[in-house]
């Protein structure tokens, strides 16, 4: 376990046996804290990381729904800090609230699910970007749409570029399928998780359509 931080002439070490089972105790106490915070309604943001074929995904949910999916390539600490700043600092690693989302994402990667049923919380996107995200949900599994056509669908036909930035800043990728938006010339275009990840997702959907 961690060391005592002050040098106090060896007196600290005599309390070493008060530290027994600390890791196990911390796990037990953490689970208890999550349970009582949930019961009291003061767990504002729950998060949990899952393993997927495209690497680790960090999932975060409010009581409204899934609010953030972060790729393994994103710095976890800054993602959690952003959630603390923008939503609430009452953030805990609490897998329970993410159970349904984790299961649906697993099924998606196994090719057994082509749309998500978990509630979504769009509070991290505003204005036009938020409107774009809701339209992305209308692009069917296995299909793609161009940036221009999503712009048209979102009521601003000339805003293909803004659609690009809405996709790039999509707080809930994979579940909100910004990977289905490609360039008009047929090339894939950019992706928050990297171009290979976009290709993997589109391949997966093409093979299970």
């Amino acid at each position: 376990m961690s060391t005592i931080r002050v040098d106090n002439g060896g007196s600290a070490s005599m309390f070493a046996s008060l530290l027994v089972d600390d890791a196990e105790a911390q796990r037990r106490l953490h689970a208890r804290l999550v349970a009582s915070a949930t019961a009291e309604g003061i767990l504002d943001v729950a998060y949990h990381a899952i393993d997927t074929p495209i690497g680790s995904l960090l999932l975060a949910a409010t009581d409204q729904g899934l609010v953030r999916v972060a790729f393994g390539s994103e710095d976890r600490e800054s993602v959690l800090s952003m959630l603390a700043e923008r939503i609430s600092p009452r953030v805990l690693n609490a897998p329970g609230r993410l159970d349904a989302a984790a299961r649906e994402i697993d099924e998606y990667f196994e090719g057994r699910r082509n749309s998500f049923d978990v509630p979504l919380d769009f509070r991290l996107a505003q204005g036009f970007r938020r409107a774009v995200l809701t339209h992305l949900l209308e692009i069917p599994y296995g299909d793609t749409a161009s940036y221009a056509s999503v712009a048209a669908r979102s009521g601003k036909p000339k805003a293909a570029r803004a659609v690009g930035s809405a996709c790039a800043t999509n707080p809930i990728p994979v579940v909100v399928p910004c990977h289905r938006v490609v360039r008009s010339d047929g090339t894939l275009g950019g992706y928050g998780g990297g171009p290979q990840v976009k290709e993997i997702l589109l391949d997966l959907e093409a093979h299970h359509d």
Partner: peptide, 22 residues
């Protein structure tokens, strides 16, 4: 403000030791 999870990770063990002793 840091996520509360970080507070639990950073200070949970020390506070438990203090509780045990006190």
């Amino acid at each position: 403000m840091r996520p509360f999870e970080q507070v639990v990770v950073d200070h949970g063990p020390v506070v438990l030791r203090v509780c045990r002793a006190v």
